[in-house]
Computed example of a mutant assay.
Amino acid sequence: MKINQNTVLQGQRVTLVPYTSAHVPRYHEWMQSEELQRLTASEPLSLEQEYEMQRSWRDDADILFSPECTFIVLDTARWAGQERADEDCMVGDVNLFLTDAEDPTLGEIEIMIAEPSYRGRGFGKEATLMMMSYGVRNLGITKFEAKIGQENETSICMFKKLHFKEVAVNSVFQEVTLRLDVGDQERQWLLEQTNHVEEKSYVEPKLPAGTLET
Score class of each variant (00 low, 15 high):
residue 186 E to Q: 13
residue 112 M to T: 10
residue 139 L to V: 09
residue 123 F to S: 02
residue 111 I to F: 01
residue 105 T to A: 07
residue 195 N to C: 15
residue 207 L to T: 03
residue 114 A to M: 06
residue 138 N to Q: 09
residue 211 T to F: 12
residue 111 I to D: 01
residue 154 T to H: 12
residue 137 R to Q: 12
residue 122 G to N: 13
residue 91 V to F: 03
residue 172 V to G: 09
residue 147 K to D: 07
residue 104 P to I: 05
residue 184 D to E: 15
residue 114 A to I: 05
residue 95 N to T: 05
residue 211 T to M: 15
residue 156 I to T: 11
residue 135 G to S: 08
residue 118 Y to T: 07
residue 193 Q to V: 11
residue 173 F to S: 08
residue 110 E to F: 01
residue 167 V to T: 13
residue 212 L to F: 14
residue 181 D to C: 12
residue 145 E to T: 02
residue 152 N to Q: 09
residue 118 Y to R: 08
residue 125 K to S: 07
residue 130 M to F: 04
residue 212 L to V: 15
residue 161 K to G: 07
residue 195 N to Q: 15
residue 181 D to R: 13
residue 127 A to C: 10
residue 201 S to Y: 15
residue 195 N to Y: 12
residue 175 E to T: 08
residue 158 M to I: 07
residue 120 G to F: 14
residue 161 K to A: 06
residue 105 T to V: 09
residue 185 Q to K: 10
residue 97 F to L: 06
residue 133 S to I: 04
residue 164 F to K: 03
residue 170 N to K: 11
residue 167 V to I: 08
residue 208 P to W: 14
residue 194 T to L: 10
residue 202 Y to R: 06
residue 182 V to H: 00
residue 201 S to D: 10
residue 136 V to L: 02
residue 119 R to I: 02
residue 116 P to N: 06
residue 94 V to R: 07
residue 191 L to E: 11
residue 93 D to L: 02
residue 116 P to W: 09
residue 111 I to G: 00
residue 118 Y to C: 04
residue 192 E to M: 07
residue 209 A to Q: 12
residue 112 M to N: 11
residue 175 E to K: 11
residue 103 D to F: 11
residue 169 V to A: 10
residue 103 D to Y: 13
residue 154 T to Y: 07
residue 125 K to N: 08
residue 144 F to D: 00
residue 152 N to T: 07
residue 197 V to E: 07
residue 192 E to C: 04
residue 180 L to T: 02
residue 135 G to Y: 05
residue 188 Q to A: 11
residue 110 E to G: 10
residue 94 V to H: 03
residue 212 L to R: 15
residue 170 N to A: 05
residue 90 M to P: 01
residue 155 S to A: 10
residue 190 L to Y: 08
residue 163 H to V: 00
residue 206 K to C: 15
residue 198 E to H: 06
residue 110 E to P: 08
residue 211 T to D: 13
residue 140 G to R: 12
residue 90 M to G: 02
residue 121 R to I: 08
residue 148 I to G: 03
residue 91 V to I: 15
residue 154 T to M: 08
residue 118 Y to K: 08
residue 127 A to F: 07
residue 112 M to D: 03
residue 105 T to P: 03
residue 197 V to S: 05
residue 103 D to G: 04
residue 132 M to A: 05
residue 170 N to G: 07
residue 162 L to V: 01
residue 212 L to G: 04
residue 177 T to H: 07
residue 141 I to D: 01
residue 144 F to G: 00
residue 188 Q to W: 05
residue 106 L to F: 09
residue 111 I to M: 03
residue 117 S to F: 14
residue 164 F to G: 03
residue 172 V to Q: 05
residue 167 V to R: 13
residue 109 I to F: 01
